[in-house]
Design a binder for these strands. Structure first.
Lengths: 215, 215
DNA sequence: CCTCCAAACTTTACGGCGTTAAGTTGACAA
DNA sequence: TTGTCAACTTAACGCCGTAAAGTTTGGAGG
């Protein structure tokens, strides 16, 4: 009645149930425990039933990643909206914080979204490609707007957006892998660390300096 | 005669052979193909022989990652030395380029080094922890030196180093996953993209601006 | 030279995995 | 009522990581 493309014959909506089960398994910490067989068990079907709805395991993971990117986008939008951020640099700060918070709140899902095994899937699954691109959009917009107000922009909008994305993405990865932490860097908390490091790239968008870069 | 802790009884130095085989397998593209059994096959021993030298598969991966971090460190040092970079901002540029080039030249090894499955190993294997820390050292030093010359530093040395690391790490990840590319960002090549984005954080270390950040 | 020991390695085995191929069920149209 | 066909099950293959028990072999002590 509601979700799938082909209605509820026997199970109800196995496709949906599998994706939901995968998200639940991811949240309960087990990336390695996320097997097709476990999902099937969780949904109460035989171990090969998923193959009626997904080509292979990667296709299931891709569907899960699509949900992940949707959540990320929602988190970014919510962060911006909650502080009524209209100034582009404030919006960039909100976006940076939202990105890192999402990664810390959903580490396994975040890792899956940017997993090696899904690289090819991005080129084949339009849903996934679009969901991924949509997550990047708010950053692109905020950076573009900020740059348009710079007296002396140091980078193109695309470069600025890439650099900003790279920073928050790298920060997220290092934080969820324990390579970096507020304590290890002498910051009081994560929000502060994100704010300070994001401030670096925000300032760096503008070349208006007193001759610090000599060449 | 040379390497291992306990000489060559039957094989020669199986421990070394396994790590070498793993590096070779990684370079030939297969992360998923990197199985203990494949390594054993490659070394010409039975599938359980590795357990005489490593506790489990993770321990093998940790040993491989140690090599990876050593290579990364060597690449960073070589990049700095090759351009005789003495000015800290030039050194930071060289380090950023070296980091990203390493990731692009050894994508699977790079992913393994920062793999989820090795997080716990960093807390148990001192060799791994030290190798990882050593890779970060040059960045830390260059950023610290650059900050010490800032008239108006915007961040602490630890924060600046974290932000710089995050940028190059995120850039590396996005590039090897195909999320970002010079073409997609309108840059002529990777070196330029790295130089421009690294320039953002380098400039951002200093707060010497004409009142761009209003609060 | 022979004996023996312990380290290095092999054999065998278990359960779990992704995936394929062939068979079964059951809702719905005719 | 009957037939159809998608949804699902059963069975099987070859991989994997890992544990337990057995076998080889270089070298030290007699």
């Amino acid at each position: 009645m509601t979700t799938g493309k082909s209605g509820n014959y026997h199970h109800g909506d196995l496709r949906e149930a599998l994706v939901t089960a995968a998200l639940k398994l991811l949240e309960s910490g087990g990336v390695e425990k996320l097997s097709l067989r476990a999902l099937a068990r969780d949904a109460g079907v035989s171990q090969t039933a998923p193959y009626g709805h997904f080509r292979d395991k990667t296709a299931v993971l891709a569907a899960v990643a699509v949900r992940g990117f949707a959540r990320l986008r929602a988190m970014l939008d919510a962060g911006v909206a909650s502080r009524g951020a209209v100034e582009p640099e404030v919006r960039m700060q909100a976006l940076a914080l939202g990105y890192v918070r999402f990664a810390l709140a959903n580490p396994d899902l975040f890792r899956l979204m940017f997993s090696d095994s899904l690289c090819e899937a991005f080129e084949q699954d339009p849903d996934l490609a679009q969901a991924g691109a949509a997550s990047f959009e708010p950053i692109r917009e905020a950076v573009g707007e900020r740059l348009s107000r710079c007296a002396e922009p140091a980078v193109t909008p695309a470069e600025g957006a890439a650099g900003t994305w790279a920073l928050v993405h790298g920060l997220s990865n290092l934080l969820i892998d324990g390579k970096l932490s507020p304590e290890s860097v002498g910051a009081p908390d994560i929000d502060t660390l994100v704010e300070r490091t994001a401030g670096m790239v925000i300032r760096g968008l503008d070349a208006g300096h007193g001759g610090i870069m000599q060449r």
